[in-house]
Design a protein around this nucleic acid. Structure first.
Length: 152
DNA sequence: GCCAACGTTGGC
DNA sequence: GCCAACGTTGGC
């Protein structure tokens, strides 16, 4: 069992959108390191911290789980998509991958970035590291449990 | 392979 | 909107 944090801008795709859809494919990842995590390490049943970024109140809003392991992201081949990738189109196959997730539990209270920063048990989180912009990050079991216990 | 230029992320 | 930090691109 692995633990992850996935960032999404709520204006683009929010926790409410996930609950409404019941199941979502995580398309649009266009960073190699984030892709590699999904493609090589995401397993069925892995737990995901759903993080709202670039918004008034950034923070973790709930827990989701992986319900399908990596498969090619078709938006890379769609010229009309915001996520179109000419290099994939040229190669004739998507260079990018996605997984499917489902919502598990919305937190009682947002685990805001400010509160996470103030929690002595969470100082190891990659999220808090200066300059860390990865949209998909590994989380330790200990970090995950602390977050679930505190805000879940 | 170097590195400058450019684009993106994301908190504030 | 600002800007620090980082990733990617492309000329050489």
């Amino acid at each position: 069992m692995n633990y992850w944090l996935m960032k999404s801008e709520p204006d683009v795709f929010s926790w409410d959108d996930l609950e409404r859809k019941r199941r979502a494919s995580w398309d649009g990842v266009r960073n190699f390191q984030a892709r590699n995590f999904m493609r090589d390490q995401f397993r069925l049943g892995d737990c995901v911290l759903f993080y709202h970024s670039s918004c008034a109140e950034p923070g973790i809003i709930g827990i989701a789980k992986v319900v399908r392991e990596a498969y090619p992201d078709p938006t890379a081949l769609d010229p009309k998509s915001d996520y179109y990738d000419p290099a994939s189109a040229k190669a004739g196959a998507s260079r990018w991958f996605m997984v499917d997730i489902e919502p598990v539990q919305r937190f009682k209270r947002l685990a805001s970035l400010a509160e996470i920063r103030g929690n002595s048990g969470l100082q190891t989180m990659l999220l808090l590291r200066k300059g860390q912009r990865l949209s998909i990050q590994p989380v330790t079991e200990k970090e995950f449990k602390t977050i679930k216990k505190t805000w879940g």
